[in-house]
Write a protein that binds this DNA or RNA. Structure first.
Lengths: 363, 363
DNA sequence: ACCGATACAGAAACCGTATCCCATGACTGT
DNA sequence: ACAGTCATGGGATACGGTTTCTGTATCGGT
């Protein structure tokens, strides 16, 4: 009744089972398996045989309780089906795997409550880092919220990494991996302007989303550089989805708005815009040019292939993980430096077939 | 020197720290937090205050070692950037979150070694279930390999779930969530045939991939049902990617092959095929019709919008998780039943604009 | 043949939490 | 006023490992 374990009992085999069956101590089994202590060849063989026979694997929970354990990164994402995010996740996961780290994924669905719950959950899991993906809504409380997360995680020996968001202000223990969002938009808009376009419908995204803000700002700067007036009426805000692209163009057309090009905030928005133009009998790029942003696979799969801004999503994921791994190995010295807390990767325009100089017309 | 912990020491706060600071026992803190034992209002308040002050969260590893703990599902996937897989993952993750479960993600990259390593890693983590996504390569050893996984996981109190793969033969402790792959292909091919197409280029996918086999089989059955000879020469195998679709069509065209429609194994392959046709000066669907399979967002974002087979990926994910959760709650009785081990969801054709009757022409 | 060094194996002390079992004080009914 | 319940709180133990500390052969050197 009170005996600890019946011989052939069901359930997972423990290290004790292995030890008993191999006729050695628990400590020896542990040492054979972790291999960080001298063990005789005979003992190793005996233990390994039993391990194979029992199909034994160590209990990760017990292991990490006792101090060992596999480092784990948590990836928090709004929507797992977004192509751009998927690539970042791939980068993180790939780099993690390379080091024998594990990766957890959670989706926030744009819900701050859920985000908080997830961060706490990850804290419970004792993850090495929490990677937060995607543009942020620039509410007032955002900075405070993130700073709180950062400190909370830091106090628990974990670390916050922001990917694709602007860095936090002040002395906050967080790392940011960013890309030259505004620069990409500047280059993209310049491309359009240098092709001769002057009337451009701009669909930057949600007004409160940091990435949309940056893209809009870059575009505006390009217009200024070219001495072309930037008309606020030509800007339509909305979500980064296909429907928004479609509806924005449909609406602009219905209102008799004149434009020779569409500067979309993402490739998916561009796809929607393209479809709406077609539906209205307009040809792309003959009648209207279109450019996107992100360079997800879709961009090169559309007809015509989309000229867009390449964002190194997968690379960002890898960089994010490397930053965490480095800091973890670097020890306190590096950790205090506050240097390399903000990494910025470059973007560049990928020219395909969706842009052509505007048709010369009398009006 | 030998003191257990210095007052303000860095690192994560433990339940002992909370107990000490609140002047109560460790047991009481645990009870307040788990809330499954009567506790006086006064004690609860005192404990909660300290918990907030210390920003304490329980250690998940210790918790699950001690018997409590959050159930976790592991999702194993070849390639996290595949749209279809992303949707299954979303379904699983969503359903998991709904129940307060956690989800882990690992990518195998089509590497059997890595798959094995991941399954073992998940076994170490003591996950409630391992969900293996995506079509499998039908090598001889596949059945053995999966059966071994299933038994291994089962012995550890976990469970194997195969999603989008054919079920395992024999008495293996695994659950399969499948969709009517062959039926969908049959319906899709019928759609093409009933529109009058007789010369159809078929791009089912890799010959060894179970999903490709099913899709090819369904198509063949439809041809037979229509009394149309199915010419092996019209079938081109290859990976499920854009490039394959492009190259297969390009090659077929170069060889002077005559066809009025393309039956692609996936939407992405269809996109590649479409692009190749355009490059050759052919119009879709005026000159050549195209259909895909999967109904990922891309299908409705292409121009023309793609007629395809809808596969309920997200639903499959949800169903998979529900199956695991049910079996876990159902106890041994249900677990032995062997019933409901193979769930099949329906598919249906989504008619869009990429199919038109073949142009009547003299030849 | 004796001594110190070396190489290995085992016993035991944790890691942080949940829970079983027992103790205590308050409350109830008579 | 007293025994019996009931509602709570605390102490001890288990969970499955890792690691430190300790002990015992074995070996080489003199």
């Amino acid at each position: 009744m009170s005996q600890r374990k019946v011989a052939g009992e069901a359930g997972r085999a423990t290290i004790r089972d292995v030890a008993e069956r191999a006729g050695v101590s628990v400590a020896s089994v542990s040492r054979v398996l972790s291999g960080n202590y001298p063990v005789s060849e005979d003992l190793r063989r005996r233990v390994m045989k039993v391990v194979r026979d029992l199909d034994y694997v160590t209990n990760a929970h017990a292991r990490s309780l006792a101090g060992g354990g596999t480092p784990t990164v948590a990836i928090l994402i709004n929507n797992i089906t977004g192509a751009a995010f998927a690539h970042v996740a791939k980068g993180v996961e790939g780099a993690a795997t390379l080091r024998g780290w594990l990766s957890l994924v959670g989706t926030t669905g744009d819900d701050p409550e859920r985000e908080l719950a997830l961060v706490n959950l990850m804290r419970q899991q004792g993850v090495a880092a929490v990677v937060l993906l995607g543009g942020a809504y620039d509410y007032d409380e955002y900075q405070l919220r993130m700073a709180r997360f950062a400190r909370s995680l830091d106090a628990a020996g974990s670390h916050l990494v922001l990917v694709g968001r602007p860095p936090l202000e002040g002395d906050v223990p967080a790392t940011t991996v960013d890309y030259d969002n505004e620069g990409g938009a500047y280059a993209m808009a310049s491309h359009l302007l240098s092709a001769g376009h002057r009337k451009v419908l701009v669909l930057p995204g949600h007004a409160e989303l940091t990435t949309a803000q940056g893209r809009l700002k870059g575009a505006r700067r390009a217009f200024e550089a070219y001495g072309v007036p930037f008309e606020p009426g030509m800007v339509r805000h909305g979500p980064y989805d296909y429907e928004h692209g479609y509806e924005a163009v449909e609406e602009a057309l219905a209102q008799g708005m004149a434009f020779t090009a569409v500067l979309a905030g993402t490739d998916v928005v561009a796809a929607g815009a393209m479809q709406a133009l077609r539906a209205a009998g307009l040809r792309v790029p003959d009648d209207v040019s279109i450019v996107g942003y992100d360079d997800i696979p879709l961009a090169s799969q559309l007809t015509p292939q989309l000229t867009t801004v390449h964002v190194p999503y997968e690379e960002m994921g890898r960089v994010a993980l490397r930053a965490v791994a480095d800091r973890r190995e670097g020890g306190a010295a590096r950790r205090k430096a506050g240097d390399g807390d903000h990494l910025v990767l470059g973007t560049h325009v990928v020219v395909r077939n969706s842009v052509r100089p505007p048709a010369t017309r009398r009006d």
